[in-house]
Amino acid sequence: MTNPTSASRQIAIIRARWHANIVDRCVDAAKADLEAAGFQVDIYDVPGALEIPLTAKKLAHTGRYAGIIGTAFIVNGGIYRHDFVSATVIDGLMDAQMETGVPVFSTCLTPHNFQEVPPMIEFFEKHFVTKGEEVAEAAIETINLYAQIEAEETAKV
């Protein structure tokens, strides 16, 4: 199990490049909020959502990161159904955090219906800004909580 120390202020963001114009809104918002809170953010690009879980696990095993965020925009179409891809990615992210002890957060989101038309693209670009802010807040709160738990355990010794 990999356990970064409470002093670790590094977070990795893994972003899928499908629909990069939407995904990057989330990444930019999360990165800005995390850096404002004193975290260093490293960004890793993967082709699609299915590559995120293994990348998260490999990054967690390095011991460098206090948390890892995966972000993707998973739409229906092509060979794989979006619900299959989404479930597979989320299960993989959960496995990565449970195996490594490093919290892994997800903004791998699947719209119910999506069509590449300007109003929908604009809606999801704005929506992913909000999701970036929310995932940054969740990461900060969780990492701070784990640091507090670690400090309490260290004080008992």
Rank of each mutant, 00 (worst) to 15 (best):
P53L: 02
I11S: 03
V135K: 02
I11Q: 01
S106L: 00
K156M: 14
R64F: 03
T88M: 10
H19M: 11
S8V: 13
N3P: 09
F124Q: 00
K57Q: 15
I140W: 00
S106G: 07
H19K: 09
T142M: 08
K131V: 12
I68M: 02
L50M: 10
E137C: 09
I14P: 01
C26L: 06
K31P: 10
G38R: 03
E152W: 07
V129L: 02
V157P: 09
M120L: 15
D45E: 13
M98S: 09
I13W: 01
L145Q: 10
T5Y: 00
T142S: 06
Q40G: 12
T55S: 08
A7C: 14
Y80W: 11
Q115Y: 13
W18L: 14
D33Y: 02
R64A: 09
V89N: 02
G77Y: 04
G63N: 04
F128A: 05
V104S: 00
E122D: 15
L59C: 06
S8E: 06
I14S: 00
A151G: 09
G63V: 06
D45W: 00
H82D: 11
D24E: 14
I90N: 05
H127F: 14
D83Q: 08
V157T: 11
I14T: 03
N113K: 13
A151S: 13
A136K: 01
F39S: 04
V41W: 03
K31C: 13
I13P: 01
A37E: 08
M94F: 14
L50G: 10
L59H: 02
G63H: 03
T100P: 08
R17A: 12
E153R: 13
R15C: 11
T110L: 13
Q97P: 06
Q115W: 14
G77S: 05
I52M: 01
I13Q: 01
T71C: 06
L93E: 01
T5L: 11
D83E: 08
G48I: 12
P118F: 11
E122G: 12
T110W: 02
E153H: 08
D45C: 07
K131D: 11
